[in-house]
Design a protein around this nucleic acid. Sequence first.
DNA 1: CGACGTGTTGATTCCTGTCAATACTCGTGG
DNA 2: CCACGAGTATTGACAGGAATCAACACGTCG
Lengths: 249, 249
Amino acid sequence: MKIIASQFTPASIDCNECPIKHRAVCAYCEKSEMALLEAMKSYKTYAAGDPIIFAGDKMAFVGSVVFGVARLSQTMEDGRKQMVGLLLPSDFVGRPGRAYSAFDVEATTEVTLCRFERKPFEKLLRDIPNLRERMLEMALDELDAAREWMLLLGRKTAREKIASLLTIIARRQNILPDAAKNEVSFDLSLTREAMSEYLGLTLETVSRQINALRKDGVIKLEKKRHVIVNDFARLLEETGDDADGGFLA
Amino acid sequence: MKIIASQFTPASIDCNECPIKHRAVCAYCEKSEMALLEAMKSYKTYAAGDPIIFAGDKMAFVGSVVFGVARLSQTMEDGRKQMVGLLLPSDFVGRPGRAYSAFDVEATTEVTLCRFERKPFEKLLRDIPNLRERMLEMALDELDAAREWMLLLGRKTAREKIASLLTIIARRQNILPDAAKNEVSFDLSLTREAMSEYLGLTLETVSRQINALRKDGVIKLEKKRHVIVNDFARLLEETGDDADGGFLA
DNA sequence: CGACGTGTTGATTCCTGTCAATACTCGTGG
DNA sequence: CCACGAGTATTGACAGGAATCAACACGTCG
């Protein structure tokens, strides 16, 4: 058995110290409300590749991603697979008001969840306006993201899809380019296969297009998973999106 | 100028008589809460093809589709276009908490909206828990629908896409097949072009695949826009989805 | 070292897009 | 009444981009 970092993470975290407290579903809660959540939370860590929930399974809990990357996906009978959600720290897992999961949830890297049993959480959602408000806001944000993703899946070329994914990952890691230095670098926490599931491509096409972008000088690669972008504006052009759309939003 | 039906529809509707009162955003509201909404609502009708909001425009209002079909879509600089929402009666238009629309909204058929000014509506959303609860529920439902749609866009073949769209339209018009007679028929309120925007295809491919399904005896056509399905189970097989997935949900 | 997971690269196929010509439908106006 | 035109839909020929099938390279771990 591999030794994984989680074995050294504390069994629990003080909510005041929580790295996602400003963006998670609890972000708007007041002290007294936090106490209610804190009383019922528990942490669980999943190894990279482990399933968290299967589609059709009973959802006993919901929760927030604290560390790591998880993904939401759907699989067709013949094995075709499409990722439909990329869950980074502060993102919410599970759907209140629904007993069974419509999607598979898997850990992509090692993932730590802050979990709540579904039923009690749903009660808090009814009782705490601040919680429900944040939940609504997050759902609407995800809906917007899903719709951007639909444009990518339905209309973009393979090259544009790759460029778009790279900018999305760069943005979500908050490694936005300085006005001063236009260079960014970041890790792809996804394998080529995971990228292909995200983009609706085969992993071969992903590999080819990444290398095409490299050959064209749009990106540089280090160790296959680390990307260096010298000219972020150039990468943005390759996405097919409006030049400035992403930054004004 | 063409004479349109809307010129004969009443300027306002009593909420008690509203055809969407059980499913719209106001569905959970009590009498006193309905009164607040009723005081601020106004109706507006748009002709088929008319824009309702442009992406980037200030959103002065939000509202519910009462009659007709509208669509939410995104356009790339070079004209590629992807529909990202199909809005049928009771569906909500606009995003509370956001001043500018991220998407284009257009009337596909003639559409009547029950509109609320955005700012006052947002205040009610804060004040009326029943309203916020329904709003959250609708947002989560739309998110699930968007994720199903992503599977369609990313992984399904053209033929599967068409079959899927037909079942979606049949379901949303609540023309589910009787256990007794397995035959359903319904109108496509979408042009071939609108279908292509929904499915991430060209209109030529849509036309070809519809006719392929017809030649294979899966569907029959009347007047190009009316579909008759003799064997709904057969159509479901063509979608690529799990045979029973849709019905258990 | 060998096995496995991951990634790259090549040859080929085929589905869908593109370009183009031709019907069909429905109003409008001569 | 028929001709005309615009919008919608079908059909064909062809091209191209991504999928498929297959071989091989790289790194890590046992």
